[in-house]
Amino acid sequence: MAGGAASGGSAASDTYAKARHWLLMPSWVVLGFFVFAPVCVMVIYSFLTKEFRGGVIWEPTLAAYDQFFFDRGLFGDSDPTLQWTYISIFWRSIWQAGLATILSLLIGFPTAYYIATRPAKTRALWVFLITIPYWVNLLIRTVSMKFLLRDEGPLNDFLLNIGLINDPLHIINTNLAVQLGLFYSYLPFMVLPIYASVERYNFTMSEAAADLYATKFTTLRRILLPAVKPGVIAGCILVFVPSLGAFLAPDLLGGAKNFMIGSLIEEQFKGNAGNWPFGAAASMILLSMVMIILLIFSSQQRRAGADQ
């Protein structure tokens, strides 16, 4: 993930040092122009006034953020009260993403561990098996989920046929469906980092723990988990962050009643009813949350690195 890219390896080699500015220029131009600049512009837009048909009027104001948090304006006649509508959408997104992360961890950790303890040849096959779904279009995977979970869908068919239930389970358009959708979308991201950590783990330590009278469960809890913590945390972040800003799962599986941040933002830019500054403001808030999480993570990594 970002951590891996940010290391870049050691800089011992300088064969092409002379040409480096020319070599870097294309990436700086393209990324600077089409990623960095847009984000800056978005920051600015979040402080502008909305125009009726979408777009903005260049008049600076705090209206967008105001609308997000408060009922009436900060500068209105009555005291502002906290507007919970939007905050609750954010809150719901946070705990949906959190739940999806926990679910992925419960399934992903044992899977990663099991794969990492297979003999070398089988291991490569398992990893291959787990990575394939990651390469399949997210939209298609979400659509497949939608198909599977429908009232008249194959899952309900199957459960009805084997007599487990009498009426079809109404899963679509509920929180549960969104949960499952998020969990399904990002599960491989949980498995792979944990797998990498467990693969590097020295199993003689588990033997030493058993030799010193620890049961298998205690060994897992006190010896293995601390050792693979970096992988677990990386996996959690790789599931939590995309889930937080997800759009497809809540939109296709959750329906109108299960708004998350992604749907909220998307709505601001659709057609004439949109409020661009508001959408920009909401994006800024989401971005800040993600940046804070990543900063905490990278400072933790640096501290852990110093201990080693």
Binding site: N202, T204, M205, E207, A208, A209, A210, D211, L212, Y213, A214, T215, I223, A227, Q308
Partner: peptide, 17 residues
């Protein structure tokens, strides 16, 4: 192993880091 009253010094030490 965790029920046997014998203890082992491993070749690569296996100290818990």
């Amino acid at each position: 192993p965790h029920k046997r009253p014998v203890n082992t010094v491993f070749q690569n030490y296996a100290l818990f880091p």
